[in-house]
Amino acid sequence: MSDRKIIAVVGATGAQGGGLVRAISADPSGGFSARALTRDAGSERAKELAALGAEVVEADLDDETALRGAFDGAHGAFVVTNFWEPRTEEDQRRRSASQRELSQAANAARAAKEAGTRHVIWSTLPDTRPYFPAGDQQAATFDGGYKVPHADGKAEANRFFAESGVPTTYLQANVYYEAFLDPSLFGPRRDEQGRLVLAPGFADARVAAHAAEDLGRTAYGIFRKGEAMAGRAVSVAGSILTGAQYAEALTKALGEPVAYLPTGPDTVRAAGFPGAEEVANMLAYFVAAESDIARLVDEDLLHELNPRLQSFDTWLRGRPADLTIR
């Protein structure tokens, strides 16, 4: 019988969980094996993980009993919820996306406790609400009090893991580098004159970012380091740059000038597209919390956990096929 420590990975077919499964699979001498949790074991992504050697198990965050079974015998569990996951009309009528996340996180915390899991990594985000002045009439409020629901709800869910007593590390993502390749997110686009411009909306603030794959690699490093990481928060970032610096890096990678337009959250808020209010709130948080976000990033620890942590420049050099912008 294998003496490898099993890591149950929620969301194994997604960016975060998939990165962790691949990191475990790439280190056959590391003493760990991956149990990939997915709602559809027959999906192409699930089959790809199985081909890497992962044990694929069907489980749903809305089903606590199934989670309990999927965690059974596992040394550790990686838990992530997806605020943006498509929902049925019935589920949308019954609860908000934030309420769903809270329920799912509570299910996972209870399941981990009941299964005797020795170490949980909860993929969370910071609470943005303290950075908005009391009585702020400009920044919209959602779901009964959240400013950025996909972040604030996860921060609120931290308590389920703390109260469970299960040793938990709180892993915090920042902006994905991948967002700077998508013009619908932070990526450069062509203006009416055909010039490439970058206008992500966070003005002159320094913004922390990282490759999606590095989140999974860092999670693996946390499991390798062990329960000494319990109770700690780890904020992942490979670079912390201004918008102008991101534009400069893209200029070098593309071989074409990318001009930075220092637009701010108010410009995004005034644009009025669906979801503009929440996006503007997120950008306002980046600006207001700039120094606190940077302070949370422990570069020495991150490189210890993930020696392959990529800077934005390094990451761009590795993806020429992704840099074709028309």
Rank of each mutant, 00 (worst) to 15 (best):
D143C: 03
A155K: 02
R93M: 11
W122L: 12
R87V: 15
I121A: 06
D91H: 12
D191P: 12
A97Q: 04
R95T: 14
Q104G: 03
A140F: 04
R93N: 05
G187H: 09
G153A: 13
R129S: 15
R159L: 06
A157P: 03
F161A: 01
A162N: 08
A140S: 09
A105H: 02
T88F: 06
V120K: 01
K154G: 05
H150D: 07
A134C: 00
G135Y: 10
E101W: 01
V120P: 02
D127P: 05
V120C: 11
T117D: 02
P133Q: 08
L171Y: 01
D143L: 02
F132S: 09
A106K: 10
V120L: 01
R190E: 07
F186E: 11
S98W: 02
D152H: 01
G135I: 06
G135P: 01
L181Q: 08
A157W: 00
R189G: 11
S184H: 13
T124G: 14
R94F: 05
R118H: 08
E89H: 05
R159G: 06
G116W: 07
R95N: 00
R95K: 05
A111I: 10
A134F: 02
L185A: 15
P130W: 03
A140M: 10
V120E: 00
G194C: 06
V148L: 10
D91T: 15
A109T: 09
Q137C: 10
A157S: 13
F142L: 05
R159A: 15
T81W: 02
A108D: 11
K147Y: 15
P183K: 04
F186V: 13
Q137R: 15
F180N: 03
T124A: 14
F180V: 08
L125I: 04
A157Q: 00
L171D: 02
R95W: 04
E114C: 01
T168W: 02
D127R: 04
S164R: 01
A97R: 10
P133H: 05
S123A: 11
R87F: 08
Y170E: 03
G145C: 07
A151C: 13
A140K: 14
A151I: 06
E89Q: 12
A155W: 01
R190W: 03
S96T: 10
L171I: 04
T88D: 10
L171A: 04
Q92N: 08
A179V: 12
R189T: 09
D136F: 07
A162H: 08
E178R: 11
N174E: 03
Q172A: 12
P167T: 11
T168D: 00
T169C: 11
N107Q: 10
L185G: 04
S96D: 03
D136H: 10
P130L: 07
A109C: 10
Q92P: 00
F180Y: 11
Y146D: 13
T81Q: 09
P130M: 08
V120Q: 10
H150P: 04
P126W: 10
A173P: 13
N174H: 06
A112M: 03
Q99I: 08
A105N: 02
S123V: 03
P188Q: 09
T81R: 02
E192Q: 14
D182I: 13
G194H: 05
P167K: 08
T141S: 13
Q193L: 15
F83K: 09
H150S: 11
L181E: 05
T88S: 13
A151R: 10
